[in-house]
Amino acid sequence: MLLIPCPHCGPRPEIEFRYAGEAHVARAADPGAVNDQDWAEYLYFRSNPKGIHFERWRHVSGCARFFNCVRDTVSDKILTTYPAGEKKPDLGTLMKEAGR
C-alpha cells in the first residue's frame, strides 16, 4: 500500500485515494475543432512510461481534491505531489532532490 503525500493533507495511505490516470492530458478548449485521430489520442492514448510518470490521484476519502503526482513506475517511489492546475515540475530538479 503506497503512502501518498496529499499536497493538501499530508501523507496518507493509498486506500484513501483513487487513481485518476495520466496527468497533463489537456482537454481541447474547442473539441469540435479537433480531428478524430487527435481526439482519440486525447481519449485513449497514454504515455505509460516505464520510469517517471506524471499522474493524477484524488484524495477521495480526505479532502476530495484531485492533485498531481510524480512517481517512478519501476520502484513506485513518489518524487513529489502538487495541486491540480500547477505547472509540471522540472524533472531534472526532482531527480536531483531524490539523489539520482
Partner: peptide, 13 residues
C-alpha cells in the same frame, strides 16, 4: 460525483 468533481477541479476550475 467523481466525474463532476474531475471536470470541475481540473478542466473547468
Amino acid at each position: 460525483l467523481n466525474h463532476m468533481e474531475d471536470y470541475l477541479q481540473t478542466e473547468f476550475p
